[in-house]
Amino acid sequence: MTTLLASTRPAPVRVPGAALGLARSVVRLHRSALWFWLLLMVALAATMLWAYGPGYGTASADVQDQCRRDIEACHFPGGPWLSRYSTAVALTTLVVAFLPLLVAAWAGAALVGRELENGTAHLAWTQSVSPARWLAAKLAVPALLVSVGTALLIPLHRLMWDGGENLLWTDWFDAYGFRSNGTVAVAYALCGLAVGVLAGLVTGRTLPALGVAVAVMFAITHLGDQYRPSMWPTVTVTGAASLSLPDKALQLDRGVITDEGVRIGNNMACTTADSSVADLRSCLAHNDLADVWATYHPQSHFWPLQLTETGIVLAVAALAATASFVLLRRRTAASGAAV
């Protein structure tokens, strides 16, 4: 038996680029996920391009055609093409807005949870790869693919979203639209990855990791939607200007100031006055009020809001990633540190 092994031992070849091998191993283990991701990107891009071009064109021509024939259709546009177009827009927006949850579910369950559950993570750690470097690869390779994928979707979605303004009354501050139209899309997707990895490490099992990752990521996106208006200073105007806010402004609150100088929010008094100054004056005097005011985000706040939220969400992602490393280090002999 021993003679079978009587071969000369080939000298170990030092190959640079161990990181490349590690990255390739991540892709090898998650090849089906990679294919799914690519297919999803292609499908989303194709649908959004269709909606932007032929979808919009056909729907808008159809609506105009109906309007010419029937005056009622001008006010209540409908028809199969419009419904197809609006479905395409709504569906792609929904998918892009909830991609972070999908990423989190995959990262928690397939990327980390399952590997810890069935022990293949430990298999990797007893090859020449330390747990810390294993985790780094698990974060870096998907992060690259997720960033590139979502970054490519953003401009396409913006094209589609802005193009649909006339037909669908899309708003820049719509929660799903906002999450799909700018840099926050990448930030949330990366956050989903980090949260998923952390959930996988904490639970160490596939299904709990999936549940925890999705729940936490849902909470994070919900909090983002909730506190988005406070992420950049708002604009407050008083007097007649508050009755006619700029076009496409996101109105947050409006109210009145009493003669005693008390500011009352969420009050619609005198808002029915037309924007002529005289009409407003008489209404205010009649109600013992000094002034009316309104707080809003003009459309020009889109990018400041996007970038602030991106920063905050990326910070959360970094926090989750750091927590993952700390957790792994505490559990295993992750690096060269003495036991």
Partner: peptide
């Protein structure tokens, strides 16, 4: 192949 990728420095394929 995975073994080779994770043990670049010392993998003995044979």
């Amino acid at each position: 192949r995975l073994g080779a990728e994770l043990n670049r420095a010392r993998w003995d394929r044979e």
